[in-house]
């Protein structure tokens, strides 16, 4: 059974100028024990998708259509209290900014303990012992001493390890990692990613890894979802997206990975910027920036077409994708 099954998910936020749709018809799934990479620029809807799954959209955000099923349980119809009970034991999340994601006036050990006691996961004394074990497992030296530290006494990498320990406290089945290494030093980034991968195998979790780093996804993801302008523009299994990418946006993103072996005078860029939610153009949302755009692209939204086995792309010109090299 699918661990996470998102289908046709649309989300709107209420603003002063009325509702703005930030996610449109997003569908993908995560199987137990696999890593699904969700890639895209800032504002593409990656984080909103994860908050929608967690039920943390807040007062102004609303799921307008679609379904989210977690281990077969439909989340969109659950009450706030029912969702709360799932956050922690069923699904957990780690965030981009470890520096600000921990409560500054609570000891880090207590923050891990709280994740367990709030769900009556185990008795408080055992939670305390488990918290130290978890800190040891995520690679914090002298965990019994560090448990009494406050967040400001720890480095960024250590704080992110604490965040991971909090997320894993109740042995969740789904871990959402929202750009977990963006705010960290490069040397620490690899350590944290490897830790997440090791723990995934150990705990048998499914991982939804949100990132804007194609390189990271290429290394560790079993499947890839590329988002642009609140839509899924390409979705594939394994290496297909990297070897035979079928959407111009994904191709251009892949080309923008700097290569150490190849001397480049200029890093390739994608011209223009992604429009803010609510200001997307008609038709394909990428057509204004796309070197391959034709008249039809501005008229109607392309559907997610099959581009290969378990490989879908939202583009009218997938057949001609190889022309991109000549154009850009």
């Amino acid at each position: 059974m699918k661990l996470l099954d998102i289908s046709g998910l649309s989300v709107s936020f209420n603003t002063l100028r009325g509702p703005v749709e930030v996610l449109q018809d997003v569908s993908f799934d995560v199987m137990p024990g696999e890593v699904v990479g969700v890639v895209g620029e800032s504002g593409s809807g990656k984080s909103v998708t994860s908050l929608a799954i967690m039920g943390l959209l807040g007062h102004s955000g609303k799921i307008t259509s679609g379904n989210i099923a977690l281990s077969g349980t439909e989340l969109t119809t659950l009450s706030e209290e029912e969702l709360r009970a799932l956050r922690g034991p069923e699904m957990a999340m780690i965030f981009q900014e470890p520096g600000t994601s921990l409560n500054p006036v609570q000891r880090v050990g207590d923050q891990i303990v709280e994740a367990m006691t709030e769900h009556a996961f185990c008795p408080p004394a055992e939670a305390r012992r488990r918290a130290v074990e978890l800190m040891d497992r995520v690679g914090i030296p002298a965990p019994d001493l560090r448990a009494r530290d406050y967040p400001h006494q720890l480095s960024g990498g250590m704080k992110q390890r604490i965040m991971i320990a909090i997320a894993l406290a109740c042995r969740p089945k789904l871990l959402i990692a929202d750009e977990p290494t963006t705010a960290l030093d490069v040397t620490i980034q690899a350590q944290i990613l490897n830790l997440i991968l090791d723990l995934k195998d150990e705990f048998g979790m499914g991982v939804m890894l949100i990132t804007h780093d194609m390189g990271v996804v290429a290394q560790i993801a079993d499947r890839v979802v590329v988002m642009y302008g609140g839509q899924v523009v390409e979705r594939s299994e394994g290496d297909a997206l990297f070897t035979r990418s079928a959407h111009p946006y994904s191709r251009l993103l892949l080309r923008s990975i700097p290569s150490a072996s190849q001397r480049q005078d200029d890093l390739p860029i994608i011209k223009g910027t992604m429009p803010a939610a609510g200001r997307f153009p008609d038709g394909c949302r990428f057509h204004e920036r796309c070197p391959m755009a034709m008249a039809a692209c501005a008229l109607s939204v392309p559907p997610l077409n099959e581009a290969g086995p378990a490989h879908f792309a939202r583009c009218f010109r997938t057949e001609a994708i190889d022309e991109l090299e000549a154009l850009a």
Binding site: L56, R84, L102, N103, P104, I166, A169
Partner: peptide, 17 residues
Amino acid sequence: DRDFVRTARAKGVRENR
């Protein structure tokens, strides 16, 4: 609006707490 409040909610802490 701060991040650690979101973290608390993400780990399933009751809203009152």
